[in-house]
Amino acid sequence: MNTRVKKGLTYLGFLALVLGSVFLAQGVGGGRYQLSHSLSLFFPSDLSPSEKIILFEIRLPRIVLSFLVGGSLSLGGAVLQGIFQNPLVDPYVLGISSGAALGAVIAILSGVYLGFFTVPLFAFSMALFSAFLVFYLGKIGKRFPLEVLLLAGIGVGFFFSALVSLGMFLAGEDLHQLFFWTMGGLWNSSWQEVKMILPFIVVGAPILFSFFRELNAFLLGEKVAESIGVEVEKVKKQLLFVVSLLVASAVAVSGVIGFVGLVVPHLVRLLGARDHRHLLPFSFLLGGGVLLWADTLARTILYPVELPVGIITSLLGAPFFIYLLRKRKKSL
C-alpha cells in the first residue's frame, strides 16, 4: 500500500477511535454504561430536564474538556521534548504547574470572587508569569541556551512550589481546598471551561503543527539545525511562547495532571511516529484519548466517589509505559 494512503488511514483510524471514545464515554455514568445515554448524542429530544443537564451540561463538556486538556498537555510535551531534545521534559518544565498552583492558592486563600472563572484566571496568569520569568532568567544576550532555560525552569518551579507549600501551611483548616487543586481533576467541568481553553487550542495547535520541519531539524542538534537554515533562537522563542499559552490554559482549567504530557509523546514515538509532522497531531489525539478514558475511569471505579484523575493517569500509565520501554528499548 502507498505510504500516504496508509498514513491517511491511520489518521482516520485515530479520529474514529476518538469519536468512538466520546460516544462510549457519554454512556458511562452513575457507575454503569447505558447505551441510551450514548445514543442521546444523536437523539437528544426525549430526556427529562435533569437528564438533559446531566448528559449535556455535565457529562459531555467534561468528556470534551478531558480530551482537550489531555491533547494540549501531550502536544505541549511533544513540542518541548523536541525543543530541548530531552526525553525527560514534560509540559511543566517551564514552571507552569507551580506557577498555576500558586495562582490557585492566591485565589482560594484571598477569597476573591470574580465569578466562576476566578481560580482558573489566577492560575492562568501566574502560570504565564512563571513561564515568562523563566524566559527572562534563561536569556543570555539574545540567546536561550537550553540548559540555562531548563535550570531556570527548575529554579523558578522550586521557588513557586515553596510559596505553594507556605500557602498550604498558612491555610490551616483550608488546606484541603488547595490540596484538591494540586491533585488535578476535571470535577466540575462545564462548557465555560471548554470555551476558555478552546481558543488557545484552535490557534495554538495549528501553529505548533506547522513547526514540524524545524522540530525535526532540532533532532539533529541546534548547531546542525542552524547550519541547514533554521533560525534556531527565533523558532525557540515562538514555540515556547505558544506552548506556554497552550499548557497554561490547560492547567488553569484542570489543575496539575501529571504523566500525560510526559509519556504520551513517547508512546506515539514507540508506535512509530518519530517525524514531528505526525508526532505532533498524534500526540494531541492520543493524549486527548488517554485523558478522556482516565477521567471516565476516575468517575466510575469507586462510584459514587470520585478519584482524582491524576492518580489514574500515573497509576495505569506509568507501568504501561515501562512495559513498552522494556519491550522496545532497542528502538529508542
Binding site: G30, I54, W187, N188
Partner: peptide, 20 residues
C-alpha cells in the same frame, strides 16, 4: 443524601443532581 458513603468523600456533580 450520601448516607451510603462513609467518611468525607468527593462525589460527582452528576450524582448530586441525580440524588436531588
Amino acid at each position: 443524601a450520601f448516607a451510603d458513603l462513609s467518611g468525607y468523600v468527593i462525589v460527582d456533580l452528576e450524582e448530586l443532581i441525580r440524588r436531588n
